[in-house]
Structure formats: C-alpha cells, structure tokens
C-alpha cells in the first residue's frame, strides 16, 4: 500500500468495450465499494485527472480519441487498462477493426484482468497505479530540483551580470 499526499482524480473512457467493465468502474464509486472515501474522484475533464481508467480493445475510430485524452492529461499520469479486452483484445482480439489491446494505442502502467473485471480487481489496480504515480511524481520532482539548481547556479548569476553591465552603461 502506498501513501500519497494528494487525492488522485481519475478520468474514465470506454475505448470500444462491451460496457461491462464501464459499469463496474462506476460501481466502484457507489456505496458498496465507495472509493470516494479515499478521495478518489471521477472527473470528466482529462486535464484534471492523474489516472486514466480505460476499457476496451480500441477500434480504428476510437484510437485518435483515446490518444487525445491521454495527451491532454498533465504529467505525471498513470494509465490503467481495465478488463480482458483492454489487456489483450480479449474475445474481440480477431475482429477486423480492433487494434487488440490498449498498449498498442498508449503506454499502459497497470493491467486489470477479468471479463468483466470485478470492482475489487479495479480498486486493486488503482492502488497499484497509485504506487506507480508516486514513483512518477518523484521522477518529476527530481527534474524540478535539477531545474531549480540550474536556475540558481547558471541563470541567476547570468541575469545579475547582465544587470550590472546595464547599470555601468
């Protein structure tokens, strides 16, 4: 179990699934499972979200939509593929227009199996996703620290030098 400081928000999208996993994702939010007590909120806006819960094996028409939602999400972000068809294509793997698996469209961090995936499995997947999110946050923090160092050692002295030269003129 991981500990994170902020409540993770998630965005959910149906990438050509049969709907079974999507209603199980919604069932996670409702009183029996109730993930909202952990501060997890289902948001409709990809720019508000940290976690992308995505179902289905993605067909040709849905591919650009899935990619667009993924690209709109701010870094760091975690993608959780929910259900057998998001993992491998499932029963639809040899349909003529399915690309067969979410990882052929966008990078996936956690796979949740099941047809349909049970709410317990989805919650477990989200908890695993939180650990990945934490690592990614740390990586982003290291980058930010490096940028801060660079600002202190390179940028600020240069700016100060320029200001001195301006003053001399």
């Amino acid at each position: 179990m991981s500990y994170i400081k902020k409540s993770p928000w998630l965005v959910h999208y149906d990438g050509s699934s049969c709907n079974g996993c999507d209603i199980e994702v919604l069932a996670c939010l409702t009183p029996l499972y109730d993930v909202e007590r952990f501060g997890i909120v289902n948001t409709g806006n990809p720019k508000h979200a940290d976690i992308f819960l995505v179902t289905g094996g993605v067909n040709a028409q849905n591919l650009p939509v899935v990619k667009q939602i993924y690209e709109q999400m701010p870094e760091p972000k975690v993608v959780i593929a929910v259900g057998a068809c998001a993992c491998t294509g499932g029963v639809f793997h040899d349909c003529y227009n399915m690309i067969g698996g979410m990882d052929k469209a966008i990078p996936v961090d956690v796979y949740v199996p099941g047809c349909a995936a049970r709410p317990e499995a989805i919650i477990d997947g989200v908890v695993k996703g939180l650990a990945v999110l934490e690592e990614k946050q740390k990586a982003v923090a290291v980058l930010a620290e490096r940028a801060e160092e660079e600002r202190e050692t390179v940028l600020e002295p240069t700016v100060a030098m320029h200001k001195q030269q301006e003053a001399k003129k």
Binding site: D14, S16, S17, G56, G57, N59, Q61, N62, V65, F92, C95, Y96, N97, M98
Partner: peptide, 8 residues
C-alpha cells in the same frame, strides 16, 4: 456513431 463498433 462507430466508436464502439467491434464487428461482432
């Protein structure tokens, strides 16, 4: 429509 068409 067509976002969920799987060709079943």
């Amino acid at each position: 429509i067509g976002y969920i068409h799987r060709g079943l």
